[in-house]
Simulated assay, not measured.
Amino acid sequence: IYLGTEPVGYFALDLGPAGAMCLSRLFIKEKARGQGIGRSIVAYAQKLAEGDGRSRLYLRIWARDLKAEGFAKKCRFRKAETVPMEVLPGTTLDITTWEKLWR
């Protein structure tokens, strides 16, 4: 993700289960936050998912990351479930799946 010529973040889109797309590894540098970049990425991901015939966009957030949860709510994701997930060998965190549905 660039703001002008400066790199300010990154994201990935993963094809999830049938009918779904995952917006993963979304990161925006602190100084670039609050400018609508993240919301634009969500809109872009949803447009791609819709164009590919998918009806669900989701993301996974560490359950204690209140800033990320606030972002998900602003983007009209809804909380689906929280489960313990091994994120590194021997390291388990509670991860919440947030989703947007259409159709």
Rank of each mutant, 00 (worst) to 15 (best):
G38Q: 00
R78K: 12
K74R: 13
L26H: 01
R64S: 14
K31S: 15
W62P: 09
K100G: 04
Q35S: 05
E6M: 04
Y44S: 11
F11K: 06
W102D: 12
T5P: 08
A72I: 04
Q46I: 13
M85R: 04
L26K: 01
A68G: 12
W98I: 02
L3S: 07
R64A: 12
S40F: 11
G34C: 07
P17H: 14
F27N: 02
L88H: 03
L59P: 04
L48S: 03
E50V: 13
G19Q: 11
M21W: 10
I37M: 05
I37Y: 10
A63Y: 03
E86I: 00
G53L: 05
P7G: 05
C22S: 11
I37A: 04
A49P: 03
P7A: 07
S24F: 00
A43M: 09
S40Y: 10
L13F: 07
T96W: 00
P7T: 04
Q35Y: 13
D94L: 08
A68T: 10
G53W: 08
A49M: 09
T92P: 03
L26T: 01
S24I: 03
S55P: 06
G70Q: 11
R25K: 12
G19N: 08
R33T: 13
R54G: 12
D52E: 14
M85P: 00
Y10I: 06
M21P: 08
G51P: 01
F77W: 05
L59D: 04
K31T: 11
V83R: 12
R33P: 06
W98D: 03
A20Q: 15
L57D: 04
Y58P: 01
W102S: 09
G34S: 11
L15N: 14
R56L: 13
M21S: 12
R78I: 12
E6H: 07
P7D: 03
F27K: 02
L93E: 07
R33S: 09
K100D: 05
R78Y: 11
V42A: 04
E81P: 00
L59T: 10
T97S: 05
L88D: 01
E99F: 02
G90T: 01
K31R: 13
T92K: 06
V87C: 05
T82L: 03
C75D: 13
G34R: 08
P84M: 00
K47W: 14
A72S: 07
R76S: 14
T92C: 06
G9F: 05
G38A: 06
A49E: 06
